[in-house]
């Protein structure tokens, strides 16, 4: 239970950065932190006390003791997609910097042209 609460606090730190910060880089950092905390939360849900890795290293291993493999498979997909999303956001932020010469979101008001 404590693990879940701590994970949610990590999520809240990222959400705080997105809602309150005016620097585009800080907003991207907040998005990264939220993504990490959600990945961690899914893996925490799949953990079993005294569990072992879901890999058969020998034939006499008992599958009943292994941790839940499905959250791990889904998160493996989500991590890679997170990298692609970070790439796209940083590219857009660099384009904005090229046009406005600042990362301050209050200065980015000229949406036309």
């Amino acid at each position: 239970m404590t693990e879940y609460i701590l994970c949610l606090i990590l999520f809240c730190v990222g959400l705080y950065a997105i809602m309150i910060k005016r620097n585009l880089i800080k907003i991207i950092i907040g998005l990264c932190i939220m993504e990490y905390s959600v990945n961690l939360f899914f893996t925490l849900i799949g953990y079993k006390h005294g569990g072992i890795v879901p890999i058969f290293s020998s034939l006499d291993e008992t599958p009943a003791r292994m941790v839940d493999p499905i959250p791990q498979a889904l998160i493996l997909t989500a991590i890679v997609i997170g990298l692609a999303v970070t790439c796209l956001i940083v590219a857009i932020a660099l384009k904005i910097y090229e046009k406005y010469k600042t990362y301050d979101i209050r200065e980015i008001t000229r949406l036309k042209g």
Binding site: N39, T43, L44, G46, Y47, G51, I52, V53, P54, I55, V67, Q72, I75, L76, I79, V80
Partner: peptide, 11 residues
């Protein structure tokens, strides 16, 4: 620690 070595490598 959560017994997910694939995730650790990818991360």
């Amino acid at each position: 620690f959560l017994q997910a070595p694939d995730l650790a490598i990818v991360q």
